[in-house]
């Protein structure tokens, strides 16, 4: 089975989530090969898990002030701040038989590709069940997966550089907690590629690309016109709508 690799590109939150669904549909219809895509978020965005409440988790007013998008994912998991220059995101979209049957096992399986990429940068990372990757106990990557119509969609983020103050101003954490103590505590729990080594964003991306493609039969491709058309439709009818984003 050949994998289609779609090189890193920046898009807004609504397109990023819509194209994941559009590609899942085309992989299900067998009109596209299993796909690995890399992307960043421009403008910066906050995404929440599909079972979370936007109003509870996100400071929507602050997002609007700063021009930060806010979106509900179709995957579970927690709220994430996606800084436009602070992380690399990936999606793996493949028929279920290509990945371990068990959900927990398939998280680990795909996370090993990230760990391999980080090893290229001499960063010793390890899988932290259920869905995280950590370096010396500090989280560097969070991941979320859904399975629909026999297709696995796993997306996740690898932190390149973190801005904890900005993150805390966008996620709803009670004011008492936004203290120096809280920031210090988060610094003790979260790390990033730039905190571990001097790699540029491009070097970090190339290392991750190697980790994801090592040992695979692959080619570099792009989205099909039909996928982009479907993504634009999903963006306007679902992912950018208040009904979806504030449904809980």
């Amino acid at each position: 089975m050949r994998w289609r690799i779609i090189p890193i590109r920046a898009s807004d939150a609504y397109f990023n989530m819509a194209i994941d669904q559009a590609v899942s549909e085309s992989v299900h219809a067998k009109t596209s090969d299993p796909t690995i895509r890399f992307y960043t978020w421009t403008p910066s965005a906050v995404s929440i898990g599909c079972f979370q409440s936007m109003a509870d988790e996100v400071n929507v007013g602050r997002c609007m002030e700063l021009g930060v998008d806010h979106i509900r994912r179709i995957t579970g998991g927690g709220a994430v701040y996606h800084d436009s220059e602070g992380e690399i995101t990936y999606s793996v979209i493949a028929p279920e038989p290509l990945l371990p049957k068990g959900i927990r096992e398939s998280y680990k399986f795909i996370c090993e590709w990230i760990i391999k990429g980080l090893a290229e940068l001499k960063i010793a990372a390890e899988f932290q069940p259920i869905n995280d990757i950590a370096v010396h106990g500090k989280k560097i990557s969070g991941n979320a997966q859904t399975r629909r119509n026999g297709v696995v969609l796993q997306h996740g983020t690898i932190l390149y550089r973190t801005d904890l103050n900005r993150m805390f101003s966008l996620l709803n954490i009670s004011k008492e907690k936004i203290s120096d103590k809280m920031i210090k505590s988060a610094e003790e729990r979260v790390t990033s590629i730039s905190a571990c080594c001097e790699a540029s964003m491009e070097e970090a991306y190339n290392a991750l690309l190697k980790g994801f493609t090592d040992g695979k039969d692959f080619y570099f491709g792009s989205f099909e016109d039909d996928e982009i058309k479907r993504a634009e439709e999903l963006k306007s009818t679902l992912y950018s709508t208040r009904e979806w984003n504030f449904s809980r």
Binding site: G49, C50, F51, Q52, S53, D56, I74, T75, G76, G77, G78, A79, I103, I130, N131, A144, Q145, T146, R147, R148, R248
Partner: peptide
């Protein structure tokens, strides 16, 4: 009742 959180349920 509304059940919220950062857990995973399949299918969602």
């Amino acid at each position: 009742v509304m059940i919220l959180g950062d857990f995973f349920i399949y299918p969602e």
